[in-house]
Design a protein around this nucleic acid. Structure first.
Lengths: 222, 222
DNA sequence: AATCAATGATAGTTTTGCTATTATTTTTGC
DNA sequence: GCAAAAATAATAGCAAAACTATCATTGATT
């Protein structure tokens, strides 16, 4: 077990009814839900299909997650949690500018270490395609109060701190960070599905180049 | 009937089974769906509830829209179509910089003319909260091929042209435009529901100030 | 007056999301 | 190693949502 897998993400235990990482069935559910969410999308995904894929029953799935929304929320939090972990490990040393560049690379670069496995790549696709569906809900205020979006907020605030270390005069730190964070994910979607509204081919990493320019040009002018 | 209401949005007729603007029932459906999508959200919205609100039957609703996804797509296209119309009317004259500033104000400013009615404000909230749910779907490639997202692409490309008029050396025009377009909508959501990841209060228009800075700082450096 | 399109009224189907119950297996404490 | 407890399987069932179908009625057109 490597460092990143030992990183605890506190939110996760609140979202699930019981810890899926602790049992063999639980792990099977997570594995298969990542595959199914990726392949079917949120709308076509059902607990019945998940149960079938994980060789269990619908009722058993409900003992781990009270709804498919919660399950997706669990996966999304896992993504942000691991990203936060990588940021803490890799973007803590060096000069402010260097740390900011490292952080940006971690957030945006698709060729980085944590996308090395098929599941990690699936997980990022899930975040890109499905995450808004558990954020843009009438339940968002309750969810947020319960802490279900705290990991995301933590990532934003970690990055905001890096920005302020580099450029203490920056006025709209969080807006800058979320613009880059959300924008870079969105560009990947556009690149694949609405190519005429973006100018990034997925190979040469135009997304990284653009957002790096955007970030540093904005900060240099302050 | 003012100028903007006479502007034809070609996509709309393809999305609906029959033109809802042409009949009294159709208009009632549109009116009430705007209210209901806004108040219930996409998930809780049903054709049964819409039928009840518009004093008709579920079957009749299905004669106008084949699904609630299509109805939402219709409303979202309407939003972008009207925005495109305003851009064409108001951002065509003057120096490139001036036109770009006007366009930005049209896109971002919530106090502008087209948000004067309650329904227009509802429509913008719907675009903010619900639009991703008909974009981030497994049907997106089909939808896009059918032209269901063309109005959005048109808006993006209109803005991209303004950017290029102002700064012909800009490399990532579309990425810049979508970043601002999507970002500014998202900030309104954050402001209301996850205030700690943004720094805009909704009153003094920080969103406009920030994205204007971001845009022009990026372009001046080219 | 006859016709045709739009709407109303009603019913029915399938799927999803979820709950409940009981049986069986597995784990845990002693 | 055994009893108790917990987890899971197996199965059934319900309410609502998302449609589809049918036929009667109204209302506009010519």
């Amino acid at each position: 077990m490597n460092l990143i897998d030992r990183f605890q993400i506190p939110v996760l235990e609140q979202i699930a009814l019981r810890n899926p990482q602790a049992t063999s069935l639980g792990k099977r559910l997570i594995e298969n839900s990542i595959i199914l969410f990726d392949e079917l999308g949120f709308e076509q995904f059902t607990f019945k299909k998940l149960a079938q894929a994980a060789a269990t029953t619908e009722a058993s799935v409900y003992r781990y997650f009270s709804s498919k929304q919660k399950l997706l929320l669990y996966l999304v939090n896992w993504y942000w949690g691991r990203l936060e972990c990588r940021l803490l490990l890799e973007a803590q040393a060096g000069a402010p500018k260097e740390r900011l560049e490292t952080a940006l690379a971690i957030i945006i670069n698709p060729n980085s270490a944590d996308l090395s496995t098929a599941n990690e790549r699936r997980l990022q696709r899930i975040v890109i395609h499905e995450a808004p569906k558990v954020l843009l809900t009438k339940a968002v205020d309750n969810d947020h109060q319960t802490g279900y979006h705290q990991t995301y907020a933590d990532v934003v605030n970690f990055l905001a701190k890096l920005v302020l270390d580099y450029q203490p005069n920056c006025n709209f730190t969080q807006m800058l960070v979320t613009t880059i964070l959300e924008g870079s994910l969105q560009q990947r979607f556009f690149a694949q599905h609405l190519p005429e509204v973006t100018n990034c081919s997925e190979q040469e990493d135009a997304v990284y180049v653009f957002y790096k320019q955007l970030l540093f040009k904005y900060l240099h002018h302050e």
